[in-house]
Design a binder for these strands. Sequence first.
RNA 1: GCGGAUGUGGCGGAACUGGCAGACGCGCUAGACUUAGGAUCUAGUGGAUAACAUCCUUGAGGGUUCGAGUCCCUCCGUCCGCACCA
Length: 831
Amino acid sequence: MAHEDQYDFKTIERKWQEIWERENVYSVPNRCDKPNYYVLEMFPYPSGALHMGHIRNYAIGDVVARIKTMKGFNVLHPMGWDAFGLPAENAAIQRGIHPAVWTKNNIAKMRDQQKRLGTSYDWEREVTTCNPDYYKWTEWMFLLMYKRGLAYKKTAPVNWCPTCQTVLANEQVSEGVCWRCGKDVIKKDLEQWFFRTTAYADRLLDDLKLLQGWPERVRIMQEHWIGKSVGADVTFTLPGHKEGITVFTTRPDTLYGVSFMVLAPEHPLVAELIKGSEREQEVLDFVEKCRRESAIVRTAADTEKEGLPLGVYCINPLNGEQVPIWVANYVLMDYGTGAVMGVPAHDQRDFEFARKYNLPIRVVISPPEMELRSEDMTEAYAEPGVLVNSGPFNGLANEEAQAKISAYLQEKGWGQPTVTYRLRDWLVSRQRYWGAPIPIIYCPECGTVPVPEEDLPVLLPENVTFDPGVISPLAHVPEFVNTTCPKCGRPARRETDTMDTFICSSWYFFRYTDPRNDQEPFSKDAASAWMPVDQYIGGVEHAVMHLLYSRFFTKVLHDAGLVEAVEPFTNLLTQGMVIKDGTKMSKSKGNVVDPEEIFAKYGADTARLFILFAAPPDKDLEWSDRGVEGSWRFLNRVWRLVRGHMDVFAAVADTKTPLARAERDLRRKVHSTILKVSEDVEERFNFNTAIAAIMELVNEIYHYVDNVAPKKQNQAIIKEAIENLLLLLSPFAPHITDELWQQTGHQGSIHLENWPKWDEAALVAEELTIVVQVDGRVRDRLVVPADSSKEQVEELALTSPRVQPQLDGKQVAKVITVPGKLINIVTREQV
RNA sequence: GCGGAUGUGGCGGAACUGGCAGACGCGCUAGACUUAGGAUCUAGUGGAUAACAUCCUUGAGGGUUCGAGUCCCUCCGUCCGCACCA
């Protein structure tokens, strides 16, 4: 490859990265005379190297940050490391490297890659969650939760990932498998710490409507995850027992249609009710079988419903009827009360179950204008209707009956209106080493005692053996475990579980506002200066987990009076995946493109430009080596254009002589490009079309310099065009533009310049192209002076030689004119 | 099953409130410059056709309109999320 006319990206990119760093170009104060703007990309887990998804994420964020800076904002654009987590521990186990060392090395490598991408981060604000000066405050957050009654410990059947050797929160299990390793998750009874996210369920749901700057689908996913349903608890009495069986139902209007009761296999009443009966063993075997089934099988909708009668009855409080009690696999212990009333006529699952086991089906909601007979039904009737077979409530519309029956139940003490959520409390304990310690001490005398704030941080011991099991590696370190009780001073034991790393990432965006504060996690003033984040950018895979936890944290911090913000992220951009050959890049598919290769072959500017040009940020991006080549060619084209016209930069504009046509056209292109790019980047982050417009501008400048005789070329106009070109291109390709800016005699970095403004006067078109249609089909195009009147244009259109033949033998019915654009001549057959 | 997104040349993708479909880039074809070209430049490039005339063309089929990629209805495909939530 002949290199003599290609630009030397290696030298140029290194040069400018050094200058930016030396001159602190991207350092930002918390307050100054400019308005603040906070743009944030999700910080990475330091896995070892950046992949294309990272590069895309940071390229998008960097363009936003640079444009906002040029537009006069004081822009906070920080970066950091979500540095606690399992891979570090696994590396330690497999390769004998300490997690801290492994993590530190990875961070050094990835930070270097980010710098080579040319990102405009304020590195003075870098945070690393595994450093004690950060996790001290993560522990502090735990204590805050504890103080506010939002952290508690309980024994519960929890999700256990045998591969990762730790428990998982509900959000971290998808379709029965672990979010990290993809292996089956099983249920285990363990005593664990939880955060009371359910206490915020309503606010997390309601405030979704404040998030108009979020993609709708993310809001819907969160709404679904929270899963609010409004209904009633109803207690069926159990003869011979003090307590009855309470069920949750969204359909109290169907209570007269109950023909059986179903308990979840895990329901504590099951064992109690069958004790000593002849079916005891049979039922216990069934329960055991259900428990052994994996979560995937258990929750799949097409799993065959199975159940057994207990031979025991409860009483429907409304009509006093005896209702047989069953146990069945389709009832879940961890939703509602773990017991369900069976109304086969009006619930599809109950219907299937009743048909299978020949349980009675009684219609209590009648559809309008027809009679529903249970023996004819092929599926449950879940639509609205009128109550029948329902005693005093007969004849009521079912929506009305819901309220009436709920009220009646409450009045009689048989139940009350209830709201149930799908959202569970957040299980935050992890039986692993590489995480923030839970700052709790267990004292034989005083019980559970939080570590006093002044004793934070609880430091992770360095000498540990990694021997994963049900107990955290920390439990094997006596120096760590054995301590004294902060209350009574007697020997006590530390909690040895660490915190879910999602806790670290639930508040890091606050820490960036005040990263070196050693008195508090951040000052309220610093947080108020920046929060909420104006633009957050990251992958949609965090739609529920990270984004929901961060919202929860922000609300708790708000309630504690520590921050003003009630939501952390005003606008959210979920970038698309980087794919190749139609599928996501992954090592197993062997379709990975390493950013290092692209940096080495074409440089960061080319990589950035390609990634931003090939697709809009929220869509998937198909990687194309040819496309990268095209971006590389374009930058060289810009390079040659500028280098070929170095002499124009001394030119002084001649404001006296009117411009000729070619110059007016070029100026119009320059200013319409400024307008187009400004709109594209501002409104929808349409970087791909913005870059396309810049490419058109380059083509047009070439067209001018190639077609106007050198002596006649207007140097001031070329200068104006090239300067604006460089300014518009600078957020996308920061190195080459800074270099050319300097070479063309400008003082200071181009990245400190203002965003260009378009000149309205230059935009005014001199001529317009009017499309002429006959009956909606294009027949001619007329180029007319911009000030032509409607009549003049219509006359031209009707007499056009290309239009005339189309009007032969027809009458003009009407003429529709869209001013400045189009004329449509509508005809009818001659009578 | 429910919810969401999406479907446009050989490819990635444009087309704001209904108004020239295919911007820009890739690829391809021809030419120029060259010892050479995988550099660069110029021209062309949705399909049919001998045609600068004509017709067809935005997943399929209907509809509204002077005019539909865009609005409405009925389907189909692909991707994603949730999935026995009582």
